[in-house]
Simulated assay, not measured.
Amino acid sequence: MNAPVERLDAAGRASVGESPVWRAAEQALYWVDIPAQKIVRLQVDSGRRAEWLLPEKVACIAFDRRGTVLAGCETGLFAVTLPEAAQACGSEPVAASVRKLAAPEFGAEGMRFNDGRCDRQGRFWSGTMVMDMTAANPAGALYRFDANGVLSAPVVDSLITQNGLGWSPDGKTMYLSDSHPLHRLIWAFDYDIESGEPRNRRVFADLHHHAGRPDGAAVDADGCYWICANDAGLLLRFTPQGRLDRQVPVPPTKPAMCAFGGSKLDTLFVTSIHPGASASEHDGHVFAVRPGVTGLPEPEFAGEL
C-alpha cells in the first residue's frame, strides 16, 4: 500500500532520530537525536525548528501536564526543562536544565535507556540496552516509573535491544519488541490497567517472517499496531490478532519510530537513522505519512516532575 509521504525537516538531519511525540497544545512535533544529545522541536505549520542540548545521550521522551519532559538517557531518567529562549536561537541548540529522577542497576557496562513512552494511565515505561549492539548482550530490561516517582525492578528482562512499546486503545494490551537481529520479535501482554502489571507474554509477530527488524511503534484508533521495519524502509501494520494487513513504503531505509499527530491525529510522523557511508539523501530525516487512519493522543506522564 502506498500512502502520501512528505519530508518535514529539510534543514536538519539526525544521526539516530527517535521518540517522536506530538504536542497538540503547541501543534508541534518533538523528537530526539540520541548521539547528538538533543531534543528537537518542529512547529509543523511554520517550519520553525528549535533544539536543546542535554549533558548525555537522550533516547526517549514524554511530557507531564506542565510541559516538563521526562527523558530516558544514559545514566537514568531525568526531568528536563526546555528554556523558551531556544525559540529564537535558530539552529544553535540551547542547554536544557536537567534533574535526575531515578536510575536502575544496569546489568552491564555501556548501557543506556532506549525506547519509552507512557501507558494510557500515565505511567512511564522504558527499557535499557547495551549500546554496542554487536555484543548481542541480553542485559537489557524493561522498567516502569509511576506517578509517585518510583522506578520498578525489572518487569521484563533478557532483552538485547528493547523497542516497540505501545498499548491498545483500552490500555489492556501492552506491546513490546526486541529489534536485535537475533530476536526480531514483537510480544503482546495482558495489561492490568489498575496495577500496571503485564502478564501472559506471548509472541504477537515474528519478523523473521517479514521484512526488516521491529523498531519503534504506534497504535491507531482501530487498535492496529504500526511498527517501523528498520533496514527495510517500511511501516508494517498488524491487526490486534497479529495479522499483517498493510505495508507502507517510506523513503528512509532505517525508519526508527512512529507516532500519530497533526490537528486530526491522521498523520503518522516517522523518525529515521543515518547509517553512515551507505546513507541515502532521506536517511536521518523526519517524514509525515498520511496512512488513511487516525491515531490516539499521546498520554502524558501522570505525576509532576
Rank of each mutant, 00 (worst) to 15 (best):
R144C: 13
E92D: 08
L182W: 00
G292M: 05
F124P: 04
G140K: 02
G303L: 10
I227F: 11
R199P: 03
F145E: 05
P251Y: 04
T173E: 03
D220C: 15
A302Y: 00
H285M: 01
G47Y: 07
K100A: 13
F124H: 03
N163Q: 03
P251S: 00
Q87E: 12
P104L: 08
G140C: 01
D206G: 09
K100D: 04
T267C: 09
A277G: 14
V40G: 06
G47I: 02
L101M: 14
A102Y: 09
A36V: 02
A25L: 07
L235M: 15
G276K: 08
A221R: 15
R237H: 12
S179R: 11
R213D: 15
S263P: 03
I160C: 11
A139M: 06
G292T: 10
D64Y: 06
F106W: 03
R99Y: 02
A25R: 10
C228G: 11
R202F: 09
A50P: 01
C224F: 07
K57S: 12
T134W: 00
F106Y: 15
F287H: 09
A3D: 12
T68E: 14
T267L: 06
A139Y: 00
L305M: 15
P214Y: 02
G127Q: 07
I160H: 09
A85D: 14
L165S: 07
E51M: 13
R246W: 05
N230V: 11
P240D: 09
R201A: 10
V155I: 06
Y175N: 01
P255H: 08
T128P: 07
P255V: 05
A79L: 05
V286Y: 07
A221W: 02
A88K: 03
F189N: 01
R41P: 03
P255I: 07
A3V: 04
L305Q: 12
E56I: 08
V5W: 02
R246L: 14
L182I: 10
M131C: 13
P169Y: 01
L101K: 00
K57W: 00
L42V: 11
V21G: 14
Y175E: 05
R65L: 12
C224K: 05
C258T: 08
H285Y: 13
G292C: 10
L236W: 10
A95I: 08
A302H: 06
V58T: 11
A139I: 00
A288G: 14
V98Y: 09
A218W: 06
P198Y: 00
D33S: 01
I160D: 00
L296V: 11
A256R: 06
H208T: 12
E6V: 08
E105V: 14
F301C: 10
M257G: 02
R13P: 09
